[in-house]
Measured scan of single mutants.
Amino acid sequence: SSGGSSILDRAVIEHNLLSASKLYNNITFEELGALLEIPAAKAEKIASQMITEGRMNGFIDQIDGIVHFETR
């Protein structure tokens, strides 16, 4: 797709992000992006959206560029 990722790509990214949230206590956007094979800024945006929508527990430290995952 030309304008970003398809629905399937997005679903795969979100699935992998949720998997990462179970493996890590926290991770930088750079590391997360590398893990998900997407730019760091996109990793931040998707993580932020999932947390806001209540689909993933955690919070974002924008100063240090880190996602902190919280286990249920």
Rank of each mutant, 00 (worst) to 15 (best):
S21M: 08
P39C: 05
N16W: 14
S1H: 12
D9P: 08
S6P: 13
V12F: 09
Q62R: 14
V67L: 15
S5K: 09
G4I: 12
K45N: 08
V67K: 02
S21G: 06
S21T: 06
H15F: 14
H15S: 13
E30K: 09
E14R: 04
I13D: 04
G54T: 02
L8H: 11
I46Y: 09
Q62T: 14
L23W: 07
N25R: 14
T52F: 13
I63V: 13
S21V: 09
L35C: 04
E37A: 14
T52E: 14
E30V: 12
E31N: 07
I66N: 04
K42T: 15
Y24W: 07
A41F: 09
E37T: 08
A20P: 00
T52P: 00
K22Q: 08
T71S: 12
K22L: 09
N25G: 08
M56V: 10
S6E: 14
S1G: 13
N25M: 12
I46D: 01
L18D: 03
T71A: 10
V67H: 00
A41G: 09
R10P: 09
H15D: 09
L35N: 02
G33C: 03
M50L: 11
E14W: 05
I66E: 05
L36K: 00
F69Q: 01
V12C: 13
S6A: 12
S2D: 13
S19F: 09
S19D: 08
L23P: 02
S1R: 09
S21E: 03
V12D: 08
M50Y: 03
V12A: 11
D61Q: 05
M56S: 01
Q49I: 08
H15A: 15
S48H: 12
G3T: 13
G65T: 03
T52R: 14
G33I: 03
D9L: 06
R10A: 08
I63A: 12
E53T: 08
I66W: 05
G3F: 05
E53D: 09
L17N: 02
G58E: 01
L32D: 00
S21P: 02
H15K: 14
K45S: 13
G58C: 03
I13W: 07
N25W: 08
R72F: 14
I27L: 14
S19C: 14
G58Q: 02
E37K: 15
N25A: 13
S2L: 08
K42D: 15
L8M: 11
K45F: 13
V12Y: 09
A40K: 07
S48V: 09
K42M: 15
S6M: 10
G4Q: 12
V67N: 01
N16F: 14
A47K: 00
D61M: 08
K42P: 02
E30T: 09
G4N: 12
K42R: 14
Y24H: 05
I63C: 08
I51P: 00
N26V: 12
I7V: 13
S1M: 07
L8W: 09
A20M: 12
I63L: 10
V12N: 09
S48Q: 13
S5V: 12
F29H: 00
G58S: 02
G33D: 00
F59D: 04
G3L: 12
M56W: 04
I27P: 01
I38W: 03
S48R: 14
P39W: 04
G65E: 06
Q49T: 07
T28W: 02
T28R: 05
A41T: 09
D9V: 06
E31I: 07
T28G: 06
E53P: 00
D64V: 11
L35D: 00
S21N: 02
A34H: 09
S48C: 11
A20D: 00
M56N: 01
E44Q: 14
E30L: 09
N57M: 13
S1Q: 11
K22I: 07
S5Y: 03
R55P: 01
A20F: 15
L32G: 01
F29M: 06
G3R: 08
F29K: 02
N57I: 11
E31W: 06
Y24P: 01
A41R: 09
I13S: 03
L23R: 10
K42F: 15
A40G: 06
S2C: 10
E53N: 07
G4M: 08
A34R: 14
S5W: 03
N57G: 10
E37R: 15
S6Q: 11
L18G: 03
F29Y: 04
P39E: 07
S1I: 10
Q49H: 06
L35S: 02
M56F: 09
N16A: 14
K42L: 15
K42V: 15
A20V: 15
H15P: 04
A47V: 14
L35E: 02
F29V: 06
H68Q: 05
L32E: 00
E14P: 02
Q62N: 11
I7A: 14
S19W: 14
K45T: 11
N25L: 12
I66R: 15
A11H: 14
L17T: 02
I46G: 00
T52Q: 14
L36I: 03
N25E: 10
A11D: 11
G65R: 12
T28E: 02
G4P: 13
G33R: 02
F59Q: 06
A20G: 03
A47G: 02
